[in-house]
Write a protein that binds this DNA or RNA. Sequence first.
DNA 1: ATGAATGATGGCAAACCTGTGGCAGCCGGC
DNA 2: GCCGGCTGCCACAGGTTTGCCATCATTCAT
Lengths: 229, 229
Amino acid sequence: MPRTVAIVEDDPAIRANYADMLKKHGYQVSAYADRKSAADAFRTRLPDLALLDIGLGEEPDGGFALCRELRALSAALPIIFLTARDSDFDLVSGLRMGADDYLTKSASLPEILARISALFRRADLLRDPPAAEEVLERGPLRLDMKRFQAGWSGKSVDLTLTEFWLVHSLARFPGHVKDRDQLMRDAHIVVDDSTITSHVKRIRRKFQVVDGAFAAIESVYGLGYRWNP
Amino acid sequence: MPRTVAIVEDDPAIRANYADMLKKHGYQVSAYADRKSAADAFRTRLPDLALLDIGLGEEPDGGFALCRELRALSAALPIIFLTARDSDFDLVSGLRMGADDYLTKSASLPEILARISALFRRADLLRDPPAAEEVLERGPLRLDMKRFQAGWSGKSVDLTLTEFWLVHSLARFPGHVKDRDQLMRDAHIVVDDSTITSHVKRIRRKFQVVDGAFAAIESVYGLGYRWNP
DNA sequence: ATGAATGATGGCAAACCTGTGGCAGCCGGC
DNA sequence: GCCGGCTGCCACAGGTTTGCCATCATTCAT
C-alpha cells in the first residue's frame, strides 16, 4: 500500500504542483488549502507524513498551529515545513515546535523528494523491531544493559559500574584480545595501566565467589585480556 | 551521561569551532580529522550522533564512505552531513546514502543546533516508544496520567508535577536504570544533578508516609535510580 | 637458565556518590 | 503585601568505589 502524504498549502498552483510531483513518485497525496480543513481531516485519519506551509490564507502562522495540533495527535508523525519564509527565526521555531525538517520553496524537487524519503526511512525504524540489544549472553554470562545487572549461570553478580563496562567490553567479542587502552575507552576512564589490572583482579574475585572455577578472563602477556568462551 | 556528538572535519579551525559550539550547548564532543581515525574510534564506541564533512583531506568522498560504514554499524545512528558542497547532486547522494540531514557550511549556528536537537528528538522515539496509556499500574503503584495523581496500594500520594514525572519515568520500565540526565529529560527540567537527588529524597518521603516499608526506588551507585518491582 | 618486563595481590587513602537538613528564590493565592 | 508550597542548590556526613603502590609471582627473550 502506498504511503500517504498530506500537503497543506494555500496557493492553489503551488499545491497542485507539489501534489503532482509527489503522486508521480508513488505517494498517495491529500491536499488541503487551510488549517481547518486539514485539521478536520487529520482527526479522522493521520497521513504518513505532513508537508506544511506556514502562512495559510488569513493565518500567517497557521502552519505552526497545525504542527502543534499534529504533534499532540502523534509524537512520531513525520512533519516537514515547506515555506517561502527563509528566516533563521522561522526555521528554528519550526524545528523547536516539533517538525522534523524545514525546507524553503527554493529547495529543488530532487531535494524535497530525497528529504521526504530520508525521513520515511527513519520513521520506518519505529515500525520494525529497533534491534535494541538489551541483554548480552555469552555462555553462562548474562549482561542486562538496561538494568546494569550481571549474572553467571543464573546467579547474579554485583559489579560496580566500571567493572560492568569492563566485562561488557571483554565479553562483547569473545576471544578478541583487548589491550588496556581499549578497555579504558570502553569503561570511559583514563587511568594507569596498573589500575586496569586491579579492576580485573576485583572482577575475577567477584565471579569466583559465585563459581570457584571461573576462568573466563584470560591474561594475554604483553597485550591485555581476552574473554574465553 | 551527556549525549556524545562526533564531528569529522579536516579543517582544524572549522573543526575546533564547531566542537566548541557543541560543547557549549552541553554535548560531549569527539572530533576527528580523517576517515581512518574516525572509523577506528567508531568501531570501539559509537557516538549518539555523527556530523560528517564530505571531503576529508586526501579523500574527496571520505565522508560518504564513512557514512556507509556507520550505517553498516547502526541503522539508527543519526547522521548529518555538514559540508561546503552545495550541489543538489551531493545533497541527494548524501541522503540516499543513509544520512538524516544535509547542511551546508552557510547554515547558521542556531540552525545547526536546531536540526541536531530535532534529530535527537526523533531518535529518542526509538529508545522510549511513546506511551499513550491513561493509567500506569506497577504493583501497588498507580499513576493516573490524565489527572496527574499517584496512588500506592489504594492510598493516594500527593506528588508535585515534577515529582510525578520522575516517578513516571522510573516506573515506566521497572528495573531499568535511569541516569540523572534521562530523568531530567523525562521531567522536562534542566537542573543540577544534586537537584535530582533532592527530588528523589522528597518522593521517597512522601511514599513512606503512606507505607513505612516503601523501597521501590533503588539508588544505583554511579548511575542513577531504578524502580524495583 | 637468567634477567627484565609484565601481571597478580593485598592494602590504603583519595575521590566520588548519595542522603539529609536547610535555606533562598519564585510564583500564585489570599 | 504576605504567606505557603514548590523548586533548586549547597554543605556536611557517611559509605562506596576507585586509583595506585609495594611486593610477590609469572612469563618471555636472550
